[in-house]
């Protein structure tokens, strides 16, 4: 039985057949398939990476948009705040100016009034002294001579009159 003694003819044919099969498959078979599969898995890996990048950039863009919106909103708020502040400032200024002007006017008026009063008083006093002098002259002329003592007394009297408060 040649069960465990290899037969030369079969060895010969096996070498030939396996050699031919090996040659064909190693040249046209397996490398084509494995290369294609490897290329495809690389392609898939690249695509996944690209998708990841795209996803990231989309996320970034969304974030950026959010940021910009936030910024715009903040700016808007700031502008509004500033405007209201300016408004307030302007109002306050105007109010102050008006107050100042009013005060000025009042002061002017008061001064004018005071001056008018003064001049009126002076006029009155002059009038009164002249009047009283005239009165006194008229009264005294007949009875009294125009002596210096008499004149001094008259002056003193008229002073007293003028310094007295007017009621």
């Amino acid at each position: 039985m040649s069960l465990i003694t290899p037969d030369f003819g079969l060895i010969f044919w096996m070498v030939v057949i396996f050699g031919v099969v090996f040659f064909i498959l190693a040249k046209f078979g397996f490398p084509v398939i494995t290369k294609a599969v490897q290329k495809r898995s690389e392609h898939i890996a690249d695509s996944l990476k690209a998708a990841e990048l795209a996803r990231q950039s989309v996320q970034e863009a969304a974030l950026q948009r959010e940021q910009m919106l936030e910024q715009t909103r903040a700016e808007q708020g700031k502008i509004m705040q500033e405007a209201s502040k300016t408004k307030d400032a302007m109002l306050a200024e105007a109010r102050q100016k008006a107050q100042e002007e009013a005060a000025e006017i009042l002061r002017g008026a008061r001064e004018e009034i005071a001056a008018e009063k003064e001049s009126a008083l002076r006029d009155i006093r002059t009038e009164v002294s002249a009047l009283s002098l005239a009165v006194a002259e008229k009264i005294v002329r007949k009875e009294l001579e125009e002596t210096p003592e008499q004149l001094a007394l008259l002056d003193r009297l008229s002073d007293e009159v003028s310094s007295a408060p007017i009621n």
């Binding site: 064909i24 046209f28 084509v32 398939i33 294609a36 290329k39």
Partner: peptide, 17 residues
């Protein structure tokens, strides 16, 4: 050989990507 070459042919004839 036929099986493997047919398989390899698929990759040549098709856009395997």
């Amino acid at each position: 050989v036929v099986l493997i070459l047919l398989c390899a042919r698929w990759y040549k004839k098709h856009d395997y990507l």
